[in-house]
């Protein structure tokens, strides 16, 4: 029962170059947020030419989204290490309330120079990160749960400090200039976002620490066995995120000058949405550039829609944030599915 079938043994050559889909060629997958941004500019630009396409509204959007942008960076850092920090909204409130509280001359006797108040606020937020890190690394609580819990505790502290009332900080004119002025025609706070973004980008993309953060996010056990101190990375990333949230709070204080109980929570979702949407952009992993593009694409879209809807536009923001986030992530996972299919086909070959 032997059937010998000898055939030539020359190696098979790949036939034809890899084919790219039209979608990939146009960059619609990796640059979808840029296309979306462009579409918003065109649509709302035509629809509301006077109001939407004005320098004033561009400046407004830039200035308004600085705190969200810094918060997005705060969420991004641990997220790259597959660690969630959902406490950053509350931590930002804490920073605002401490800054306003300590520098308020009316209700309390602190009346501290605002510089010190801001410093103390950021340090307090850093401490929250140390505690979150302890809970996640040492008590081994899942970061999602841990930071959700810590966030609630921080909210409670914020409510206690503020008596659930609005607090107006008494800031020096220097401090206010830090938050409200323009520099070269651009809101001064926008530069803070740019600088912090640059630092994050440099650390994540161009230093060993960034490599360790992404490795921890990719496969924590493999990273640990390769010598990465994954516990330190997770802990450190949580400290970095709450410090960053603290800075966001100080910038917001300088810009707005008062605390209200709605300060923190309203900023959390847009920040998370930008990071998730941004993770599908440029590189196919969470990254600073993608986050910023997604952030401002969404911001311009919301502003346009608000102008169109008019006075009753309070519902536009969450509606828009929610739907775009789901659509963006759905598109990204379609891409993921296609990638897996392709990989399977290649593996089968």
């Amino acid at each position: 029962m032997s059937g010998n079938t000898e055939t030539a043994t020359t190696a098979a050559r790949p036939a034809g170059a890899p084919q790219k889909s039209l979608l990939a060629k146009l960059g619609l997958d990796r640059f979808s947020a840029l296309y979306l941004w462009g579409a918003f500019m065109v649509i709302f630009g035509i629809w509301k030419t006077d109001t939407f396409l004005s320098v004033a509204s561009a400046k407004l959007i830039m200035g308004e989204n600085v705190a969200v942008g810094i918060l997005a960076l705060a969420f991004l850092i641990p997220f790259c290490a597959s660690t969630f920090d959902l406490s950053i909204g509350a931590v930002m409130s804490l920073s605002v309330v401490i800054t306003c509280f300590l520098s308020d001359e009316k209700s309390r006797s602190f009346n501290m120079p605002v510089g010190y108040a801001a410093l103390i606020a950021v340090l307090a937020c850093m401490c929250v990160g140390v505690i979150s890190g302890f809970v996640v690394v040492k008590l081994k609580v899942n970061s999602f749960i841990a930071t959700l819990g810590i966030g609630q505790v921080v909210s409670a502290i914020v409510l206690k400090l503020s008596f659930n009332r609005q607090i107006t900080g008494t800031f020096s004119s220097t401090f206010e200039r830090f938050g409200r002025g323009d520099l070269l025609g651009i809101p001064v706070v926008f530069y803070y976002l740019a600088v912090l973004g640059l630092i994050c980008w440099f650390v994540l993309e161009h230093t060993p620490v960034g490599r360790f953060i992404y490795a921890t996010g990719g496969n924590p056990e493999a990273a640990r066995l390769a010598g990465v101190r994954t516990n330190r990375i997770v802990w450190g990333s949580l400290i970095a995120s709450s410090t960053m949230a603290g800075i966001a709070g100080v910038v917001l204080s300088a810009k707005v000058g008062l605390f209200t109980s709605a300060t923190g929570p309203n900023y959390l979702f847009p920040a998370i949405a930008a990071v998730f949407f941004g993770a599908s952009q440029l590189k196919g992993r969470p990254n600073v550039g993608g986050t910023f593009i997604a952030l401002f694409a969404l911001a311009f879209g919301i502003k346009g829609l608000q102008l169109v809807v008019g006075t009753d536009s309070y519902w536009v923001n969450p509606m828009f944030q929610g739907t775009t986030l789901i659509i963006a992530v759905a598109l990204a996972s379609q891409r993921g599915v296609a990638k897996i299919r392709k990989r399977k086909a290649a593996a089968a070959a």
């Binding site: 790949p14 036939a15 890899p18 392709k342 086909a345």
Partner: peptide, 12 residues
């Protein structure tokens, strides 16, 4: 043939 790759060539 897979895109860019001949995975099986004239097999008997």
């Amino acid at each position: 043939t897979f895109p860019g790759q001949l995975a099986l060539n004239d097999a008997t």
